[in-house]
Every structure is written in structure tokens, then in C-alpha cells.
């Protein structure tokens, strides 16, 4: 048994090393004072300073943020309303199945197929109006589409978790629909909505494929910028940029973990 425990520990730790070694290497070389090559020439933060002087990168960062914020905002509203609509009404079984299928589509379709469908669809819309030229609007629409499904899934599981009893009690006390939604359903649902919104936000930041297919020349996001740079030539600036994005990810993940754990604790107390 001891032998197995040792084996498990060794295997687990080397797996973690396998996951982190490449990322560590990027962080390590981002503070290396050498423009070319991978030889250690001393510590510097120059590359980080230069990031903030690079207009292209700043533009890409602002595009990434606008895309993530706008699409998260819209998809959280759409997804929440959709989840309430699906969970709180006596739909016939067949319709439920159909709704369920549509909602699960973005989860089971490989993202490249969704991206291809978007390219073709926007191509059609473009023949009607030039608003749909490749660019930020297309990206926002595409992101909202897959985010809405994910938000709806998260919120719906929370709706099922809180049950209908409290709403029923509110109705018994003569609460109207809007009053009940505002004072009972939404407050109870808030943790689920926040969790869904955070998921949507990270999904948007994380996305590369869908942005890659729908972006125009003026709507480069950070992942697209890094990808293009890697294909041309890798500079220490890219190491620094990647490290920064990685650090933002770490902070987001820790926040997300904290929130979900707090919610779980509260739910247990209920």
C-alpha cells in the first residue's frame, strides 16, 4: 500500500510539473534581459514597461475587455431570463427536450464548427448590410450566443436547487409576478447569476477560435495578437504579455473559487 501511495504522489506531482513547467518558462524568460535567444542575461522589467508603450497591444487589450464586458452583460440577462422561462413553466415534455437540445448545442459542438457557421451566416448578413463586416460587432454577437447557453445552464441548476416552495409562499401572500421576481426569485438566484456571469466572462477571455474566425483587422484581441506574433517571431514582449494574461487568469480563478465556495457554504446553511 505504501508503495502505491508513493507512486500516486510521484505521478501526481510530475503531472502538475508537466502542466506548469511551460508556463513557468514563459514567466521566467519574460524578465530576461536579452532581446534575442534564450540565454539568461540578468533580470529586467523592461519588457513589461514596453508593453504599456505599445499602441497595438493596448488596443488589443481594450478590444478584449470591451468584448468580454459587453457580451457578458447581454448574455447574463438573456441567459437568466431564459433559465427562468424554461424552469418555471409547465412546458410539454417534447418542447422541453427541444429547448434542452438547443441549450446544450454550444456545449457539445466543437467550437470550430460554431465558428465556421458564424462565418457563413455573417457572410449572408453582409450581403444585406455592411454592418456585419468582420469586426467587434460580429465577435460580440458570436460570444453572446455561446455564453447565453452556458449562463442559462448554470442559472437553471441554481433554480432547481432553490426549489419552488419559497415562490409559492410568496404567491400565497398575494405577491404579483414582478414583485415576486424582484423580491424573491432574483435575490435567491443572485449567486447563480454571478457564477454564470463569471463563467461567461472567463469563457470570453479564454476564447480564441471563435474570435479568430470573426475578427476584422481593427478588432484584434490579446489572444489573436499573441497567436499572430508567435507565427512571425517571438519577442520577449510576448513573454511578458502572456505572463500578464496568465496573472489576470490566476486572480480571476481565485475570485471565482472564493465566490462559489461562499455560495456553497450558504446553501448548506439553508
Amino acid at each position: 500500500m505504501k508503495k502505491i501511495n508513493l507512486l500516486v504522489a510521484v505521478s501526481a506531482l510530475s503531472t502538475m510539473a508537466f502542466l506548469y513547467l511551460p508556463l513557468m518558462a514563459v514567466a521566467f524568460f519574460s524578465v530576461n534581459d536579452s532581446k534575442y535567444g534564450l540565454e539568461w542575461k540578468g533580470f529586467t522589467l523592461d519588457w513589461y514597461v514596453k508593453l504599456f508603450q505599445n499602441d497595438l497591444i493596448l488596443q488589443a487589450a481594450s478590444n478584449t475587455l470591451v468584448l468580454a464586458l459587453v457580451s457578458t452583460f447581454v448574455s447574463t440577462i438573456l441567459g437568466t431570463i431564459l433559465a427562468i422561462g424554461m424552469d418555471r413553466f409547465p412546458w410539454p415534455g417534447k418542447m422541453n427536450t427541444a429547448l434542452d437540445l438547443v441549450m446544450h448545442l454550444p456545449v457539445i459542438i466543437p467550437d470550430i464548427i460554431f465558428a465556421a457557421a458564424m462565418v457563413v451566416a455573417f457572410g449572408f448578413l453582409r450581403t444585406l448590410t455592411s454592418v456585419f463586416d468582420p469586426g467587434l460587432l460580429n465577435m460580440i454577437i458570436a460570444h453572446i450566443t455561446f455564453q447565453t447557453a452556458f449562463v442559462a445552464l448554470v442559472v437553471r441548476s441554481r433554480l432547481a436547487g432553490i426549489g419552488k416552495e419559497i415562490e409559492e409562499a410568496a404567491r400565497d401572500l398575494y405577491a404579483g409576478t414582478i414583485y415576486m421576481l424582484m423580491k424573491v426569485t432574483l435575490p435567491l438566484l443572485a449567486p447563480g447569476i454571478i457564477a454564470g456571469a463569471m463563467l461567461a466572462f472567463t469563457l470570453s477571455l479564454d476564447d480564441f477560435v471563435i474570435s479568430f474566425f470573426t475578427a476584422g483587422p481593427d478588432s484584434i484581441t490579446l489572444p489573436l495578437y499573441i497567436y499572430a506574433a508567435v507565427r512571425r517571431v517571438v519577442t520577449p514582449q510576448i513573454h511578458a504579455l502572456s505572463t500578464l494574461v496568465l496573472m489576470v487568469t490566476v486572480i480571476l480563478v481565485i475570485c471565482m473559487e472564493r465566490i462559489t465556495r461562499k455560495v456553497n457554504k450558504k446553501q448548506k446553511r439553508l
Binding site: 511551460p22 508556463l23 518558462a25 514563459v26 524568460f29 534564450l38 477571455l205 479564454d206 480564441f208 490579446l222 489572444p223 499573441i226 497567436y227 508567435v230 517571438v234 510576448i238 513573454h239 502572456s242 494574461v245 496568465l246 487568469t249
Partner: peptide, 12 residues
């Protein structure tokens, strides 16, 4: 973590 960054890390 963004997949481009992770792919790029292996690249490095």
C-alpha cells in the same frame, strides 16, 4: 488559461 498562451508556452 488561454489556449494560445499554453500552446505558445510549449513552443517556448
Amino acid at each position: 488559461t488561454n489556449m494560445v498562451i499554453r500552446a505558445y508556452a510549449w513552443f517556448l
